[in-house]
Write a protein that binds this DNA or RNA. Sequence first.
DNA 1: CAAAATTGTATTGTGCACAATGTATATTTG
DNA 2: CAAATATACATTGTGCACAATACAATTTTG
Lengths: 139, 139
Amino acid sequence: MEDLLKLEHQVCFPVYAFSREITSLYRPLLDEMDLTYPQYLVMLVLWEEKEQTVNQLGEKLHLDSGTLTPLLKRLVLKGLVGRIRSKIDERVVLISLTELGVGMRAKAQCIPGKIMETMGLSIDELLVLKGIINKVLAK
Amino acid sequence: MEDLLKLEHQVCFPVYAFSREITSLYRPLLDEMDLTYPQYLVMLVLWEEKEQTVNQLGEKLHLDSGTLTPLLKRLVLKGLVGRIRSKIDERVVLISLTELGVGMRAKAQCIPGKIMETMGLSIDELLVLKGIINKVLAK
DNA sequence: CAAAATTGTATTGTGCACAATGTATATTTG
DNA sequence: CAAATATACATTGTGCACAATACAATTTTG
């Protein structure tokens, strides 16, 4: 019988290694915008909706305040987002894009295409990959 | 035309989120052994070959010394591995399993099965996933 | 309405990841 | 063989991730 503890039989290890490989593919592209990959993800979410609570960002990206609070503070330092407490509910912190943050979207337009090119997977493979993963994440 | 910058159109984000989801699936199981997921991966590699250089571990796991050195020191503190400089080449550090480290393998036997069960993917899906990812990682 | 429970975010502490740099040991070259 | 180069690992610094805890603002309950 097969030894399930062998590295080559693992499924999770390739996912883990692939995830890190992905951020290293993004790195040279994002360096030009002075963004890390997690920061880029936050920007993606904000480009879809200009103002959101920390909670909304966290739910969409599966990240908690322990990760987001310092990350968002760094985006504030870069002048890309603003942070204000909601007047309706003082517990809530609203994160919104600055003009600079909105403007950065144009520079990001080329990124998805370049990444797909570098990964060298077909559209079919990408969709299958995404489908299988989302099946697990949906739970 | 589709907006490639939308979060829902990303392929890399699901991979990134899935990778973190995976470590959170392993966490309760590995907590019982007082191991983190990256530490578990190092143990997997060592269970296949009892003694290896830092370099060999790094190549197999795609990790560099900046990550491995402190991780391995923590495994030494736990009494799972030993660290000695090679006498043939003083630059090389040999990492080897202690008796305790070898013995831990038995406790890990149940992990792959439990993880596969929790993930809820078919064998087919797992193999397809692994195949697509390895296609990228092989480059 | 006051006490209890919940919610939203911040803080602290530990452990990766990885670029950049440092350092000692080996190897290669002229 | 000496100088240049390469190799193997360690260190430093920054930025995630996330559990655990804290805390203030809100909501729910008795």
